[in-house]
């Protein structure tokens, strides 16, 4: 009766294509604090204490907040190929 929506990834498409810079985690520097996970506006960073972080590049828009909030500068923003 009503056109309803259900939660699903990619409600605006494969938003990883929006990216100009790509966050790359230097896991050897990572102190597993979880701040990048906490502040990522996209929920594209997965984290459990002890497992360190993993970024879903299909959807990461490359905003760079994770790199900015990282207390040990373990995330680099690397230009995407072709940019």
């Amino acid at each position: 009766m009503l056109p309803l929506s259900k939660p699903a990834p990619a409600s605006a498409g494969i938003t990883g294509t929006w990216r100009t810079y790509k966050p790359v985690v230097n896991l050897s520097k990572c102190i597993d604090c979880g701040l990048c996970w906490l502040y990522c506006p996209e929920s594209v960073i997965d984290w459990e204490k002890g497992t360190k972080v993993r970024i879903d590049y299909d959807f990461c828009k490359g905003c760079g907040i994770c790199a900015d909030v990282c207390p040990v500068k373990a995330i680099d923003m690397v230009p995407e190929a072709g940019v």
């Binding site: 699903a8 990834p9 605006a12 498409g13 494969i14 996209e42 929920s43 299909d58 959807f59």
Partner: peptide, 19 residues
């Protein structure tokens, strides 16, 4: 921080601007 729920209430691939 590690005690916060991990369930995603904001899902990847949404229509928000970057940042």
């Amino acid at each position: 921080i590690d005690q916060l729920p991990k369930k995603k209430y904001v899902l990847p691939g949404n229509a928000a601007c970057a940042g």
